[in-house]
Write a protein that binds this DNA or RNA. Structure first.
Lengths: 333, 333
DNA sequence: ACAGACAATGAGAACGTTTCCAGAATTCAC
DNA sequence: GTGAATTCTGGAAACGTTCTCATTGTCTGT
């Protein structure tokens, strides 16, 4: 492997000079600079990142953490983040954590060895040690799509509860009163969206009924389908469904269709996220649109400002959502 | 930052001894070993990877390259690869290359600095320099979903052409003769699937008609919808469509539905890939199933054997596909 | 012509680890 | 008991960079 010394020898200059050229520093004559550049080109030399990192005490790397089995919303968010990250001169490392304690711990351990300069978390982390590590080492952190309960980190979110309430209100406005809820496990957004659902019912004077609530095992279409089947099996009358995720909603549509129920004829459905697929399903899905590209952009911008040394109380930014009416909801006949 | 020296001091042993403990080597007394381990635990010490990599001349890292805007098939493949990669003790770095020459070059440059021990490519790379670099540096490489033309690397593929032919044959068997083709740009699999389509027509004595061929701008649902619209606008009669990707097929279904055509009543559709979504669409999509989990597993296994020093002519493995009939195809009335 | 400022350059320390080597301590075979 | 083999241990070199510092050379203003 060709090293900086080889380049120095080949260009007949000192190692220091090569380093200066490499890092675009001044105090190098045009003549030597071109000689060095020629040698680099000739040998195909690329600086050894490990060596560079070691001496400079920083890796120039920012980490992006996401679930190993990310859903389509997270996939789109990831795209946006990755795209904006390319703009500026940091390396990016991606970490995929399986959604359990061991998975998060394994992820954390990988992280630690990498000595990141900054980090963006694209999903809620359950493991307390994660927060501890980041705080103790004062690693600039941006939380996207969630806030830490007692974690005073920069975050970018939407008002989950309000958005969910709006979605359910739409169903109510269409005359529905028996509205099922397809939720999920664990995460903060799941309970926030449930709260929004409850608030909407309350606002309309509809009693909340535990029987109309079902939690999917996983945030997948399969999870949504299963949950819907078990809801239907309970035989509590429902004319509409609110699913806290588009993928759950799509799974629900599949399950309904399998039971010979039509959407929105027999059942209206509202989703949440507005993933790309929502406008390609049949029928198109009425949903709450999250500003995914902006969330990614903001997350990157916020991290950048942290890395540039901005201080003070961490910003906690909430972006607006939009309710999108498509074809999966209809007025109750 | 706490370093190995701090641990040595704290445990009152030499740096060498700490290093031995760290790397699970023998020749350390139980007593000192426990002292070292205690010190590590106490301080939360994690070895600096950069330093470690530098001296050991290897990074213990394997790289996974995929397109920045990966489609659902690639997403599932990625999952499988990531999952199997976790089993063994290499670090994994993910690289996302935007699908153009600059993107691939940028990706390559990032790669180079990282001095990978091995690499898995999850999509066809156009940039020749990529191959050159990997070959010149003798980096163990596995190509997944494609083969290099003149690249004698280990690869794992399916027989694209045969599978496509089978898919189109199915349409023919249902009585269809006017079969549109929704293809795409650039990649080898696109032309292989086109060849399969042509061969099926030929086998049935149906003349290939350029007018029934359309290429999507991108391998997305939007791309499929657009392509389908332009095909419909040509007003060449078609009773069936073969899309070389499930996502294109789903976009096509959307476009047809928008024009008031029903699937499979007015038009049969066959896709390719069998992404998760294919069994959740409405109607469910008839398609060619790729053995995605196995492909990922194989790719990892093959890389592992390369890293373990297996040599000889690189293996080129082709996995079988399955044709899956669902609801998007029907007999021509 | 001379001091002072500044540009160009290279020598060498430092970063945190692994690994080679040699010495000390212990065990083993007779 | 003796010598040989083996285990344990620490010192120090090496890895490929960056960065500080000192030296030399070239201007500039008087």
């Amino acid at each position: 492997m060709v090293s900086i010394k080889d380049i120095a020898k080949l260009a007949d200059v000192s190692v220091s000079t090569v380093s200066r050229v490499l890092n675009d520093q001044e105090h190098v004559s045009i003549e030597k600079r071109t000689r060095v550049l020629r040698a680099i080109k000739q040998t195909g030399y690329v600086p050894n990142r490990a060596a560079r990192d070691m001496v400079s005490k920083r890796t120039g790397t920012i980490g992006v953490v996401m679930p190993e089995t990310f859903n389509m919303f997270q996939r789109q968010l990831f795209s946006s983040v990755a795209h904006h990250l390319e703009q500026f001169s940091y390396y990016t490392s991606f970490y995929f954590a399986s959604a359990d304690v061991q998975g998060e711990r394994a992820c954390l351990n990988r992280l630690k060895g990498d000595r990141l300069d900054g980090i963006i978390l694209l999903h809620e982390i359950m493991l307390g040690e994660f927060q501890t590590y980041l705080e103790e080492n004062a690693i600039p952190t941006v939380l996207a799509t969630f806030k830490g309960k007692e974690w005073a980190a920069t975050s970018i979110t939407i008002s989950e509860e309000d958005a969910a309430q709006t979605a359910v209100n739409h169903l109510i406005a269409l005359g529905h009163r028996d509205i099922g809820f397809i939720g999920g496990e664990k995460y903060g957004f799941a309970s926030a969206r449930l709260d929004g659902y409850k608030r909407a019912l309350e606002g309309a004077g509809i009693a909340f009924d535990e029987q109309r609530l079902v939690r999917a095992q996983s945030y997948t279409m399969e999870g949504g389908a299963q949950a819907t089947r078990s809801l239907l099996d309970r035989r509590v009358p429902c004319t509409a469904l609110f699913a806290i995720t588009d993928e759950l909603a799509l799974g629900a549509m599949r399950a309904l269709s399998d039971r010979g129920l039509s959407v929105p004829g027999d059942m209206s459905i509202v989703g949440f996220d507005n993933i790309e697929l929502a406008s390609y399903s049949n029928p198109r899905l009425t949903t709450v649109s999250q500003p995914i590209p902006e969330m990614g952009q903001m997350a990157v911008a916020l991290l950048y400002s942290l890395l540039s040394g901005s201080s003070g109380t961490p910003l906690s930014i909430s972006l607006p959502t939009t309710f999108i009416e498509r074809e999966s909801t209809a007025r109750l006949r």
